[in-house]
Design a protein around this nucleic acid. Structure first.
Length: 822
RNA sequence: GCGAGAGUGGCGGAACCGGGAGACGCGCCGGACUUAGGAUCCGGUGCCCGCAAGGGCGUGGGGGUUCGAGUCCCCCCUCUCGCACCA
C-alpha cells in the first residue's frame, strides 16, 4: 500500500523521473493490445519517426511532447492506444559520417539509435517499445524490397534514362538539395548534368487520385493541403498538333490558352526534345543548335531551372499553325522544359510573358489576339504580355468571343476540326528512387543478358546489403564495386547475371512504416491486413511541416497502391495531421554554423523531462515556431514552468492531507476547468489548457491558505496534468494521493454540468457602447432583471444625464447597452 | 510573380457565435524572508492625465457595416512560409 502521508519535501525531478520510468516499463503500461476482444475503441497515435543523426534535438523534443500528450490523453479517455516508435535509419548522413570517421555506417546508425532510444525513455515517452523497428534492419527492408517488387509487377516501377546532378570529383549523383550554387555541397566541385538510367515509381498515374482524395483529409493544416495541390499542379487546357512544313513531322504542344492560338508567331523546342537534331539538320542550323545543347546539357538542373535566359537558336524550319495555316519559325531554347507538357510550346508573345521576352530578344512579331474590355493593346508599345481576360480579335471565326468562355469554345472547335483535344497536364513527375549509394535498401532486380530486368523471387528476399563494402566515394556506386554482391545468376534461366547496384531513396522506407507497426514481428508478410484494418487509418499523425510534400505524398501514394492490390480497405493513411512548429533561436534556424544550437537533453537532466515538455507545450500554439531565445533567454535561470510544477507539488501534497471541506467556489472552478481543458486537449491547444491548470492550482493555493480543503481539485489537477507532465503527475497520484495504479491508466475526469455552470455572473453595463459599470448578477437573471439593474446603475446614470434613452439592448445575463439619442 | 498565413503590452501569448481586450506565464517594479539569492513567498504592472475617485486612448494604417468590431466587409502597409520559366 502506497503511503498517503508523504512528507512533502521539495520537488526533485531527478529523483522522481527515473523511478517512474522504470516502473512503467516493468508494468508494460503502454503496450497496445491486439486482442480482438478488447472492448476499448482503438486509437493509433503516430509520430513521424526520427532519423538517427545524433541525439534528440529540440525539434524532436517538441514534436514528441505533443504526440505523447495526444497518446496519453486518448489512453485516459478509454482508448486502446497504439503509440509506436522506430527509426528512419537508412540514408546519406550515415555514409558521410562513416567516411569522415572511418567507421561503418551501420555502427554510427545503431549507436545513434541507442542514444535516441535512451533519451526517449528519459523523456518518459509512452511508446510501445515492443513494436520498435529500424528501416535498416534486414527484417524491415526485406519488405521494402517486396513492395518494390509489387510495384514492379504492376508496372509502377520502371527504368528510364534521365538527367541527374553529377559530381565529377565524388563520382556520384547528388540530390537537388545537395547542390549549392551549382557546386557539390561536400567538395565544392562544379556539378554537371549527366544522363543516367535510373528507377522510377510511376506516381503520375495516381496524380488525379492524389488530388481528389484530398477531400478525405478531414483534419489537415490548410497550408499543407495547398502545398500538396500545388505540387501535383493540375492544369487544364488543350493539346494541339503542329506540323513541320519542311519535314512533315508532327509535334504536339500543350496550352492552357487555346484561345490565343491565332497569336502564335513562333514555335520553341526544349533542348532535349527528340526532334531537335533532325530539325536542325533540315534547317541548316545543326552546328549552332549542337553548340547550345552541349553547353546547356552540362549545366546542373538546379542552375538551369533558376536561369531566366531567353537565349535560343533559330532552327531554320517552320511550324504550321493548324488554326490558320500560318508558317512560323522554330527555335530551340532552354526556357522550354522537356519535363513539363510535351517539351515544345507555341510562342504567343502578346499573351505570355516568357514568350514576350523571347520575341523581343529575337525580333519576332507580336500579335494581339485578346484585347482587354474597352482598351486596346498595341504590340508596338506593349511592355509586357497581356495575360488576363478579354475579347478575342484577329482570330477568324472567334472574333468577339470573350474569355473565359472562349477557351472552352475553342477547345470544342479544335476537337470538331480534329486539330486538337482537351487535355490535363500535371506538374508532378515520376518519383526517382535510385540512389548510387550504399546505405539503403538494395533494389531487388537482377539484370540478365537474356531476360533483361528480372525480379528477385520473393522467397530470396531480402537482398542483403553486404557489410564488407568500400563505401567511400569514387568510381561507381559502392555496391557496383562489390563483386560478390554484383555477380549472381538469372532467376529465370540460371545464366550468370548482375544484380542492380542502386539502393532505394529513403522516402521509400518511410512510405509504409506505419503499416509495419501494426504487426511488426510478422516474418511472413509486410503487414497483417487484419491488424492493419483494425488499427488504421492513423487516428492522429504528428510531425514537422518539412514533410508536408514528399513524405506525405509518397505515403498517400503507397496506400493507394496497397488499396488497389486489395491489401487495405482505405485510401488515405492519415486523415488527421498536426504539424508542430520549429524550435528556432534568435529568429533563425538553429545551426552549427550559427553556433546557436540548444540541446534538449542537458536541459532535461537539469530541470527534468516534465519541465522540458511544459516549456514546449506552454510556449504557444503547437503549430507555431518557438524562439528559444525569447522563451528562455537565460539558460541558468529556473524556467517558470519548473517553478509552477514545484508549486503544484506542494499544493497537491497539502491538499491530500487536508480534511477540511472544499468550498463550493473551488468545486465550481474544478468542474469548469475539467470541461475546458478537455476541449482544449481535443483541439491540441496545449498552451491554453496549461494556463487553465495554472489558474486551478492558484485557486487551490488560495483555498488552502484560507484553511479550506481542496482534495477533489487536486485529484483533477493531477489527472489533467498527466498527459503533459507524466512524471510529476504519477508521483503525486501514487505517493501523495495514495493510488495503487498509474494515473496514466486512470479515467479522465468528467465534469458535473451542474457545478460547471456559472451561478453568478458579472453584468456589463454600457452606455453607447462604452463600459460604464459592472454589476454582479445571478446567472439566470432575466432580460428584465438586467435592464432594471443597468438603468438603476449610478455609474451608468451619470452618462445618461441630459440624454434620452433611445433603445436598450439586453444580452442577459452578460451585457446591457443603453443607447442614447440627442 | 503566384499561392497560403499572420500583424494584440517590454516578451511568449489569451479572447467560444460580433458583447468586459490583454487570461496564463515570462520580464520588470515594490515588499517579506535572508550574510547572500539566478531560490521561495506576497503585492503591483497596456499607454496617457490625475494624490485619488475617475477619465481619455488603445489590437499594423485608412474606410465601412453595427447599439456594439481584435473578431465581419473593402482598400493599403509590413512580415513569415511554400512554389517559382509549369506553357
Amino acid at each position: 500500500m502506497a503511503s498517503t502521508r508523504t512528507n512533502a519535501g521539495r520537488y526533485e525531478p531527478s529523483l522522481i523521473e527515473p523511478k517512474w520510468q522504470e516502473v512503467w516499463e516493468r508494468e508494460g503500461l503502454y503496450r497496445a493490445s491486439d486482442d480482438p476482444n478488447d472492448p476499448r475503441p482503438r486509437f493509433y497515435a503516430l509520430d513521424m519517426f526520427p532519423y538517427p543523426s545524433g541525439d534528440l534535438h529540440m525539434g524532436h523534443a517538441e514534436a514528441f511532447s505533443g504526440g505523447d500528450a495526444v497518446a496519453r490523453f486518448a489512453a485516459m479517455r478509454g482508448f486502446n492506444v497504439l503509440h509506436p516508435i522506430g527509426w528512419d535509419a537508412f540514408g546519406l548522413p550515415a555514409e558521410n559520417a562513416a567516411i569522415k570517421r572511418g567507421t561503418h555506417p551501420k555502427e554510427w546508425t545503431y549507436a545513434n539509435i541507442e542514444q535516441q532510444a535512451r533519451s526517449f525513455r528519459r523523456m518518459g515517452m509512452s511508446f510501445d517499445w515492443t513494436r520498435r523497428l529500424h528501416t535498416c534492419d534486414p527484417e524491415y527492408y526485406r519488405w521494402t524490397q517486396w513492395l518494390f517488387l509489387k510495384l514492379f509487377e504492376r508496372g509502377l516501377a520502371y527504368r528510364k534514362t534521365a538527367p541527374a546532378n553529377w559530381c565529377p570529383n565524388d563520382q556520384t549523383v547528388l540530390a537537388n538539395e545537395q547542390v549549392v550554387n551549382g557546386a557539390c555541397e561536400r567538395c565544392g566541385t562544379a556539378v554537371v548534368r549527366k544522363d543516367l538510367t535510373q528507377w522510377f515509381f510511376k506516381i503520375t498515374d495516381y496524380a488525379q487520385r492524389l488530388l481528389d482524395d484530398i477531400d478525405e483529409l478531414v483534419d489537415w493544416p490548410e497550408r499543407v493541403i495547398t502545398m500538396q495541390r500545388n505540387w501535383i499542379g493540375r492544369s487544364e487546357g488543350a493539346r494541339v498538333e503542329f506540323e513541320i512544313a519542311e519535314t512533315g513531322d508532327t509535334v504536339e504542344v500543350f496550352t492552357t490558352r487555346p484561345d490565343t492560338l491565332w497569336g502564335v508567331t513562333f514555335f520553341v523546342f526544349a533542348i532535349e526534345h527528340p526532334l531537335v537534331r533532325k530539325l536542325a539538320d533540315a534547317g541548316g542550323s545543326a552546328s549552332e543548335a549542337e553548340e547550345l545543347i552541349r553547353r546547356l546539357q552540362a549545366t546542373p538542373l538546379t542552375n538551369r531551372e533558376q536561369a531566366e535566359s531567353r537565349e535560343g537558336v533559330r532552327l531554320g524550319v517552320h511550324a504550321v499553325n493548324p488554326v490558320n495555316g500560318e508558317k512560323v519559325p522554330c527555335f530551340v531554347a532552354p526556357y522550354v522544359l522537356m519535363e513539363y507538357g510535351t517539351g515544345a510550346v507555341m510562342g504567343v508573345p502578346a499573351h505570355d510573358q516568357r514568350d514576350f521576352e523571347f520575341a523581343r530578344e529575337h525580333g519576332l512579331p507580336i500579335r494581339v489576339v485578346v484585347q482587354p474590355e474597352g482598351e486596346t493593346r498595341d504590340p508596338e508599345t506593349m511592355t509586357e504580355a497581356y495575360d488576363h481576360e478579354g475579347v478575342m480579335v484577329n482570330s477568324g471565326p472567334f472574333d468577339g468571343v470573350r474569355s473565359p468562355e472562349s477557351i472552352g469554345q475553342v477547345i470544342r472547335w479544335l476537337e470538331e476540326q480534329g486539330k486538337g483535344k482537351a487535355a490535363v497536364t500535371y506538374r508532378l513527375r515520376d518519383w526517382l528512387i535510385s540512389r548510387q549509394r550504399y546505405w539503403g535498401a538494395p533494389i531487388p532486380i537482377v539484370h540478365c543478358p537474356e531476360h533483361g530486368e528480372v525480379a528477385v523471387p520473393e522467397d530470396e528476399l531480402p537482398v542483403l546489403l553486404p557489410d564488407d563494402v568500400d563505401f567511400r566515394p569514387g568510381g561507381e556506386s559502392p555496391l557496383a564495386r562489390h563483386e560478390g554482391f554484383v555477380s549472381t545468376t538469372c532467376p529465370v534461366c540460371g545464366a550468370p547475371a548482375r544484380r542492380d547496384t542502386d539502393t532505394m531513396d529513403t522516402f521509400v522506407d518511410s512510405s509504409w512504416y506505419f503499416f509495419r507497426y501494426c504487426s511488426p514481428g510478422d516474418a511472413t508478410r509486410a503487414f497483417d491486413p487484419e491488424l492493419v484494418a483494425r488499427w488504421m487509418p492513423v487516428g492522429q499523425y504528428t510531425g514537422g511541416v518539412e514533410h508536408a510534400i514528399l513524405h506525405l505524398l509518397y505515403s498517400r501514394f503507397f496506400t493507394k497502391v496497397l488499396y488497389d492490390m486489395g491489401l487495405v480497405s482505405f485510401t488515405e493513411p492519415f486523415p488527421r495531421l498536426m504539424n508542430q512548429g520549429q524550435v528556432i533561436y534568435g529568429g533563425a534556424a538553429m545551426s552549427k554554423s550559427r553556433g546557436n544550437i540548444v540541446e534538449p537533453m542537458p536541459l532535461v537532466e537539469r530541470w527534468g523531462a516534465d519541465t522540458m515538455r511544459l516549456m514546449m507545450l506552454f510556449a504557444g500554439p503547437f503549430e507555431d515556431d518557438i524562439d528559444w531565445k525569447l522563451i528562455a533567454p537565460d539558460p541558468d535561470r529556473r524556467p517558470g514552468v519548473n517553478a509552477w510544477l514545484g508549486r503544484v507539488y506542494a499544493v497537491v501534497h497539502e491538499a491530500a492531507g487536508r480534511e477540511a471541506a472544499e468550498p463550493e467556489s473551488l468545486r465550481r472552478l474544478t468542474h469548469r476547468t475539467i470541461r475546458a481543458v478537455t476541449e482544449d486537449l481535443e483541439r491540441f491547444r496545449f498552451n491554453v489548457a496549461i494556463s487553465k491548470l495554472m489558474v486551478l492550482s492558484n485557486e487551490i493555493r488560495s483555498t488552502l491558505d484560507a484553511g479550506g480543503g481542496a482534495r477533489e481539485a487536486a485529484v483533477a489537477l493531477v489527472q489533467m496534468l498527466a498527459p503533459i507532465a507524466p512524471f510529476l503527475s504519477e508521483e503525486l497520484w501514487r505517493e501523495a494521493l495514495g493510488n495503487d495504479s498509474s494515473v496514466h491508466v486512470s479515467s479522465w475526469p468528467s465534469h458535473d454540468p451542474k457545478l460547471a455552470r456559472e451561478e453568478r455572473t458579472v453584468l456589463v453595463v454600457q452606455v453607447d457602447g462604452r463600459v460604464r459599470d459592472r454589476i454582479e448578477m445571478p446567472a439566470d437573471a432575466s432580460e428584465e432583471d438586467c435592464r432594471q439593474a443597468a438603468l438603476a446603475s449610478e455609474h451608468a446614470r451619470r452618462f445618461l444625464e441630459g440624454r434620452e434613452v433611445a433603445r436598450v439592448i439586453v444580452r442577459a445575463p452578460k451585457l446591457v447597452n443603453v443607447v442614447t439619442s440627442g
